Simulated assay, not measured.
Amino acid sequence: MALAVPTPGIFLANSGVTPTFKDILPYSTYVKWYENVHIPDWMSAKPGAITAAWRYQCLDTSRAMPFLVTYKYPDISATSAHEFRDVTLSDPLLPDGGPVTKFIQIVIMSGPHVETWRSGSTGDERGALLVTEAIDPTNMTTDQFNDWYHQSYINEISQIDGWRRTSRFDNGPWGGGQPRWLALHEFEEKSFDAKTTKIPGLLGTSKETKRVEESAQKLDMAIWKLVRVYGDKTAPWGTESWEDQIL
């Protein structure tokens, strides 16, 4: 019997304290719990299941969920392991000891790595700034969406000064109400003016890109600053960094 080939992927958690509870759970306390308690607990729940985690803070202070963490799973099937369901969500740092789910709102996206492009001068470490792009296109098959990405969109993105890497993931056709396609666009800090806190739309200006953007069923984009790295900071989203497509 042939052994199953591991499929690398992402587990992304975007969260924030619900406005009703901001007085009893200050955001600074939430960050302290998440960074120092929850992420280490999550990463150690199943040894070897997670290679690295990257913690980001949204530059848009008005975003309801400004906390973001992305986890690299060498085999995305591990996300369903019972060890993760057993991770405690209670802690003395939290009001009444928790659980934290009483006080927050959270969006989860998870799925296999599809492909990565990077600049020829890009090293393995993540860029200082990240643009997340979650989209459900309208009236496009998967092949048509991929063709647009390959033939037009990625070329537009790669022309932005300071672009480092774009990685795509498939959140699945039944993504729990979240968009099907997720992309992480990494940039150097010089790519955006220091006053830029919001990304209004897709990172391209062609007619086809505008059509995809305007007709999308769902589109959520945000810009984030890398705050902290856990584990192997050079871990590629795919199997090996040398498999990335160079632009």
Score class of each variant (00 low, 15 high):
E133W: 02
E133P: 00
E133N: 07
E133K: 02
A134G: 09
A134P: 04
A134N: 15
A134H: 11
A134S: 14
A134W: 10
A134I: 08
I135E: 03
I135W: 02
I135D: 01
I135G: 01
I135Q: 02
D136E: 12
D136Q: 11
D136S: 14
D136V: 10
D136T: 14
D136C: 10
P137Q: 07
P137N: 08
P137F: 03
P137K: 01
P137R: 07
T138S: 15
T138W: 12
N139M: 12
N139L: 13
N139R: 12
N139Y: 10
N139G: 14
M140T: 01
M140L: 13
M140P: 01
M140V: 01
M140F: 03
M140I: 00
T141Y: 06
T141M: 02
T141C: 07
T141W: 07
T141D: 06
T142F: 08
T142I: 13
T142E: 11
T142N: 12
T142D: 12
T142A: 12
T142M: 13
D143W: 00
D143T: 04
D143G: 07
D143R: 01
Q144V: 09
Q144Y: 06
Q144C: 14
F145I: 05
F145V: 04
F145L: 02
F145R: 03
F145W: 06
F145P: 00
N146L: 08
N146K: 05
N146Y: 05
N146H: 05
D147V: 04
D147H: 01
D147T: 05
D147G: 03
D147K: 07
D147S: 05
D147R: 02
W148T: 07
W148C: 04
W148E: 06
Y149Q: 03
Y149I: 01
Y149W: 08
Y149F: 06
Y149E: 00
Y149G: 01
H150E: 14
H150K: 15
H150G: 13
H150S: 10
Q151Y: 01
Q151I: 00
Q151C: 05
Q151M: 05
S152W: 07
S152N: 14
S152M: 09
Y153T: 00
Y153W: 10
Y153K: 00
Y153E: 00
Y153F: 09
Y153S: 00
I154N: 15
I154A: 07
I154T: 15
I154W: 03
I154H: 11
I154S: 14
N155G: 10
N155R: 05
N155C: 05
E156S: 09
E156I: 04
E156T: 09
E156M: 09
E156V: 04
I157C: 03
I157T: 06
I157P: 03
I157M: 09
I157K: 00
S158M: 09
S158I: 09
S158K: 09
S158W: 07
S158C: 11
S158E: 11
Q159K: 14
Q159I: 06
Q159R: 13
Q159Y: 08
I160D: 05
I160N: 06
I160W: 12
I160L: 12
I160F: 09
I160K: 08
I160R: 13
I160T: 08
D161S: 15
D161V: 15
D161G: 13
D161R: 13
D161W: 10
D161I: 12
D161C: 10
G162P: 08
G162L: 12
G162K: 01
G162R: 05
G162C: 06
G162M: 11
G162I: 06
